[in-house]
Amino acid sequence: MSVLVFTENWDGKFKKLSFELASYASKVAEMLNTNAVALSIGNVDESELKKLGNYGVKKIVNINNDALKNLDDRAYTSVIAEIAQKESSEVIILSNNNMGKGLAPRLSVRLKAAIGAGVSQLPLSTSPFTVYKRAFSGNAFAHLELKTGVKIITLAQNSFELIETANGASVENFSVNVDASNIKVQVKDVQKQTGKILITDAEIVVSGGRGMKSPDNWEPLVELANLLGAATACSRPVSDEGWRSHEEHTGQTGKIIAPNLYFAIGISGATQHIAGVSSSKYIVAINTDKDAPIFGAAQYGIIGDASKVLPKLVEAVKEVKGK
């Protein structure tokens, strides 16, 4: 028996979520009195692979196969299923991100394994196996029983802390046969922003809404974000107006995030916006309207005009950080 965790890497390095997943998988393995095994697909060197061992993983299965250079959901599903069977995995854990959302449901059908998607904490019980997941776009949570022998969990990003536990992990290099004629998805081009903090990875997010009044007013907001090492985001009207790119849109139909700290600046807080950010640990709201719904979701608030408050906030951060 084992708990299998599917990790993700980019440019030979693990994404932060891989360590979150490893920490989570190790805790689930503890609950089941078994070990966590990590699967890495890609060109990742041994010293990087061993980092997974710092988060409680006992064994790392490493697959480096050219045919898997690009993501083909069907081919990846076959590989994960093969490893799950080889490791007699009872629980398989993936991220609830773009990749995990594409792979986990295929895996669920392949292995006839129930899936708990968007889970945000450890299983509530292991017998019956019940997980806690987001429902109604953050307006409720569901206790969901996974009724099959093998279970799949996709973990909401930023919902689980990194837990360092050195476990002396071993690396097993494993080769798989991938039938190239079965690869139907061809990647023609990759357009990747570099040097920017990803909204879904960021611990602090600074977000602007219509109360910013014009795309020309974003400079102090970006400066605040830079000072805090934060990612920038925006509300739906702002991305619809084209003031900021749609990649920055946070909310129910945009990106759903759970940073430690979320600044909602000039955002009134429509239900759909709050649905996308309500899992943030702390929300700071800055708005001219004291009755704006965003103050109902925030722990800290300033009633005031973004264009006046932001420069003062930037100065305050400089002063405090400068000490």
Binding site: F141, A142, K147, G301, K312
Partner: peptide
Amino acid sequence: LTQVVSFEMPKPRASCKFVDAENPKQLI
């Protein structure tokens, strides 16, 4: 393959603490 055992509402957040707009340093 799955069954909802129950739903629950999100835990209410502590009420918002306001900081004077002239003194954002207090927020930081």
